[in-house]
Design a protein around this nucleic acid. Sequence first.
DNA 1: TAGATTGTTAATCGATTAACAATC
DNA 2: TAGATTGTTAATCGATTAACAATC
Lengths: 211, 211
Amino acid sequence: MRWNKISDAVIRRLPLYLRVLDELSVETDQELISSHDLGEKAGVGSALVRKDLAWFGEFGKQGVGYEVGFLRNELRKILNLDQEIPVALVGVGSLGIALTRYHLKRFEEDKSFNLKQVALFDIDPKKIGTIAEGIPVFSISEAATKVKELNINMVMIAVPAEGAQEVANVFINAGIKGILNFAPIKLKVPDEIHVGDADFALELQRLAYYI
Amino acid sequence: MRWNKISDAVIRRLPLYLRVLDELSVETDQELISSHDLGEKAGVGSALVRKDLAWFGEFGKQGVGYEVGFLRNELRKILNLDQEIPVALVGVGSLGIALTRYHLKRFEEDKSFNLKQVALFDIDPKKIGTIAEGIPVFSISEAATKVKELNINMVMIAVPAEGAQEVANVFINAGIKGILNFAPIKLKVPDEIHVGDADFALELQRLAYYI
DNA sequence: TAGATTGTTAATCGATTAACAATC
DNA sequence: TAGATTGTTAATCGATTAACAATC
């Protein structure tokens, strides 16, 4: 990476900060923010905010704080969100469709959300070749071709648990770098592939503990 | 709680272990599992598996391992999943509907997923009073009544960001204990309320860093 | 100048891992 | 009995917080 081995705990908070800065620049004309305020809005201590940002540069001014627009821009660059990132989704079921709609809405509304959904994949012949929510549905057998053609480097997997590992393998072989996995299964992937888990059932079960 | 102050990091792994044990008892007739194997399938070190479980009791036998069925049962009890837990969802948009379908499927297929969706809520008069996916849609103004009547103690919030905090407030006042929040906003809640964040856009943005 | 807030170092806190005696 | 694996303690590792000199 461009900065050597910054902890994932740090990276996870950057989108949180970015979200706060986006809100600020849309909803207010506030031009400066302190680490204290930014932390409060993001749910993070102010010292940690400063430490996180300091990994990437000196973005603030002593006695003043951080410039909202500038910091927002820097965070976008760090997260590669200053360019449009093509993303695909596999599994055109009701969850897949809903995620796609939600994604499209987010892409329209939120200027920093530069992840563009460009392709859908499924195995159902009835779905392949159709257009869903304005996005073409391809066969999973076309993965390698389409990943290259459309420059896709991230996929969301929204297929049943049984198929998820196989789908992951196919797309990893096709050359993608990141997976957001909605299936209730622990994917086995090579070290260089990053996986985000988005199985909301796990989270619900965790919350049940505290009832 | 029944065990005093066990770290949330521990609690988060329990549903992971439970998922592995569920698979095992459905797909194989394996009756014993070692902390090593359980850890491998859950993506956790074996020492940590033993330490996590040891917080709640002595569930294993030296030289033998853990009984799959027994441990599964114990984990269910610990997570309160040995009883049906009534859950509601707020926001009957396409995301809400998809989550509901997914939830219902999961509830049918997965014996340990004892979280039952019993009510939907929305503000749209056209939706209120209807039945979606077999579940009645109530007005958010009925929250207090329905939460008591149906014994709801967890809600999933799938409304736009602008409305999420207000919805959270209403349901917290109605007496719920846990929130699974799909809206892209940091909810402010009292200490005793537990919130799970399920904004998949944040996770996608994180993954973008590693491209 | 006086007040505020950064960037950074040192101190603390918590979580994971290693190791091993106990024992099935 | 010999081999395996637990439960648990001690060691390590990493992440967060406190504190403060530098400086806007």
